[in-house]
Design a protein around this nucleic acid. Sequence first.
DNA 1: CTGAAAGCGCTAACAC
DNA 2: GTGTTAGCGCTTTCAG
Lengths: 344, 344
Amino acid sequence: MDKNTEPTIHDIAHELNISASTVSRAMNDNPRISLKTREKIKALANSLGYRPNTLASNLRNKKSNTIGIVVPLINRHFFSSVISGVEDVAYKAGYTVVISQSNDQADKEINIVQSMFANRVDGLIISIAMQTETFDHLKLFRRKHIPLVFFDRVVDEIETDKIVVDDFAGGFKVTQHLIDQGYQRIAHIAGPLNLMTYRERKNGYRQALIQNGITCDESLVLENRLTSEDGVNAAKQLMSLATPPDAIFCGNDTTALSLMMFLRDKGYRIPRDIGIVGFSNEPFSRVVSPSITTIAQPGFEMGQKAAELIIRKIENKERTYQTIILPTELIIRESSNRLKSVQS
Amino acid sequence: MDKNTEPTIHDIAHELNISASTVSRAMNDNPRISLKTREKIKALANSLGYRPNTLASNLRNKKSNTIGIVVPLINRHFFSSVISGVEDVAYKAGYTVVISQSNDQADKEINIVQSMFANRVDGLIISIAMQTETFDHLKLFRRKHIPLVFFDRVVDEIETDKIVVDDFAGGFKVTQHLIDQGYQRIAHIAGPLNLMTYRERKNGYRQALIQNGITCDESLVLENRLTSEDGVNAAKQLMSLATPPDAIFCGNDTTALSLMMFLRDKGYRIPRDIGIVGFSNEPFSRVVSPSITTIAQPGFEMGQKAAELIIRKIENKERTYQTIILPTELIIRESSNRLKSVQS
DNA sequence: CTGAAAGCGCTAACAC
DNA sequence: GTGTTAGCGCTTTCAG
């Protein structure tokens, strides 16, 4: 019933014997309309329960006031924190955020991105799927000059704003820390090396070894998808080497946890026999026992920065791109703190 | 440059010397258009890089193909799982999902909900903020007959679809389990009792006590906001009672964890001296030590169900409402497993 | 200070 | 099978 009679500016105009344009202007606080009529209009609008139809206004303005965000998995602490950060600043700036998850699948990612384009998002914030290897869908945004911001998992070959954490420094700090703790044979479980993120973590690891005069043993470096199962498999593989490692730097906390549980069950004492470090500071890494040394990534801030960046682009159309590198923080916990654990 | 020349159906029509409506029909696979012309049109559309403007089509159809979802906090495992579930089915059905977080603040929630209305979402899925106490903003949706689904934290006084977990049964199972483990004085830390969720958990708790012939001691029941700090405070308060409890059923896992850590540091042995149970099955509850007994809530499924429900309403306009109650599962872990822990 | 008119891009009667 | 026409609700020149 009142479903069909959603009031429009015309209804208000008609009632007041004025024109729709005046109503429109009044609702937008256009100073060209006298304060008197402005108030009269707003009063009526209010009592009628009028709500401007953003769809119509968006169409007319060729602007959706919407920011798209696509992540591999919503339901992962790091990503949901980023989303939370984006939402926080976007909301304050009057933007709506629409989200989608790629489930780390390239084809779903392509679909999502295209549908976001069709929906005329004003900008797109994305962390690409592990398996994405072609980037035409993203180049589309660049071609149409729709602001595009990569975060965390970025694409080298597309020139645009990027926001990452200092993965290299993270990898370096972890490794240096392990060396400082007296570990000698440090293994590394890397994520897919087509992603810069994981490449940089690995580079940091190697650099630290080199700077400490330790030769890199390629058999100590594995590459997988960093799932729980991968953690167990990696543990098996590494510990069955002729000379197994005495410390393992895992590409994320999930792997670190599963690997740690597995080794503990096998009788290894952690951190005494073997040191373990993760990456990302997932909530569980703090409370698990032994607690896991890891690298904190500022997810929420990353989201905020990404949103600020994209909004500035949307509103100013400035043409210069930047790559923001956020600092990482090494959080030393029990799983690698051999010196403290021995002395106490 | 090509920014301004985003092709429309008119461009295609003009190029092919046909009418725009034919193009529109062809793009929508309307069988009234011959296959030949349909293909010709699609080919050109493709080579022009044409993408239908959903904004325009939405305005015309008075349908945004968008589902709104508002949660207290995106960045909480349970809620992000629900979002993930919603996104999953909404995406498959061709809907876009827009999300927002209330940060558990009533005023932000009101703003969000109103802006979603202005954006003409086709339906709204919401779990209300802890402090929300007036519901006019939600009644608006009911009045306009826009589908509305509550999940988890629902509003009794609004008649619409609801989807909750069986909190009563959850509270009951937890308490019965503690009794079975031989605990005698069982305390309960409840969340805000204006929310049905927490009220039901508490009711389940009391019912279990009653059925086992245990009298309810009101000094053993606390109410707070279930933060980490609340956990510590509650622990202090409870343990300083003349006859302190020997088990504590916490309204969520966060409280359970902080309370457990605090008591452990004070020298209590868990579960021997004191049994602890949480609620929600946060990821950390499984890996912390001792691991925390808790109630699993199917967040992802809840999101899927909520999306299915709302899409059915959007598309059929059926007028009957249902409340779906999803089962909960008691997950027995170390923090309350006194019998096993004693024998082993 | 206000109004008339045109149009954003798409769709759907209604014609033929 | 295809075209004509009108309009979704809002904004914005251009007039006055």
